[in-house]
């Protein structure tokens, strides 16, 4: 099986981030790490290779020179073909999908995180699948690899299992069952010397979207005035229940 892993990388959440002028926070090389979703996608590819020795894994890491360190970290999982791809407008999920599409080649299985980097909230993977005219299977949690490959996700009250029988784009979410392994030290050492290529691409046609502004938020969530339910316990419970039932409908 020919697998392509698309790795986005994110700014390490342990460090503060701030807009750079009117633009997005700078992607600094030594603060760029694999996201939990990147790690899960990578681990699924590795498990398929463990089970099927003829599997070949390629990886593309989003970014320019700042992403080379991250690309070496991916190479350390004994992945020989790792390249970088600079994204022209990371804030534009459509532009990101359009930039990735020409670089995907003929992989049987394209694996990527459920959210592709800091600026995606889940639309890049299905859009990429649409651009490539491939099937899409989102939020994968588990892989079962033997003679064949099956991907599983939990949906509502059931498990959905997809047998990978033809080219598929699968987005992967983090799950305790697919924690990324540690690379072998000898491979880490070899990765330091590895040649990291760069994918060049033609500018994708624009879709009329502009970045009108970037601002910092105080934390991972915006602070707000909390509406407190006072009164008797019954009244408090009734107020909370109203919100819960409204959201469930």
């Amino acid at each position: 099986m020919n697998i392509l892993v698309l790795v986005a990388g994110v700014l390490d959440p342990k460090w503060p981030v701030a807009p750079m002028g009117d633009g997005l926070p700078e992607r600094v090389a030594d603060r760029l790490i694999l996201s939990p979703f990147d790690e899960a996608a990578l681990e699924i590819a590795l498990r398929i290779r463990d089970a099927q020795s003829d599997t070949v894994i390629h990886a593309i890491v989003a970014g320019g020179t700042e992403a080379i360190r991250l690309a070496r970290a991916v190479t350390a999982f004994n992945i020989a073909d790792v390249t970088t791809l600079d994204l022209p407008a990371p804030w534009d999920q459509g532009a990101t999908a359009r930039a990735l599409a020409p670089a995907c080649g003929d992989a049987d299985l394209i694996l990527m995180g459920r959210e592709f980097g800091d600026c995606d909230d889940g639309l890049v993977p299905p859009m990429l699948a649409g651009l490539l005219c491939r099937a899409f299977f989102g939020r994968v949690q588990v892989v079962e690899a033997g003679a064949g490959v099956r991907l599983m996700r939990e949906a509502e009250t059931c498990e959905e299992w997809l047998s990978v029988a033809r080219p598929v784009v699968a987005s992967v979410t983090n799950d305790r069952r697919i924690r990324l392994r540690k690379p072998l030290m000898k491979n880490v050492m070899m990765a330091r010397q590895a040649l990291i290529g760069t994918v060049t691409h033609c500018p994708a046609p624009t879709d009329g979207l502009d970045l009108a502004g970037v601002s910092a938020r105080a934390g991972s969530r915006a602070q707000m005035d909390c509406m407190m339910f006072d009164g008797s316990p019954e009244q408090q419970a009734s107020g909370l229940a109203a919100l819960l039932v409204e959201a469930a409908r």
Binding site: V10, C119, D210, A212, S215, R217, S220
Partner: peptide, 26 residues
């Protein structure tokens, strides 16, 4: 049309502007 959304795990907000055509959002 001007839309706002969070990026970087909710630590940054971006404002996006689109003037024509078709757009999608969730």
């Amino acid at each position: 049309l001007v839309a706002s959304r969070a990026t970087h795990g909710g630590r940054v907000a971006v404002r996006l502007r689109v003037a024509r055509g078709l757009a999608v959002a969730t």
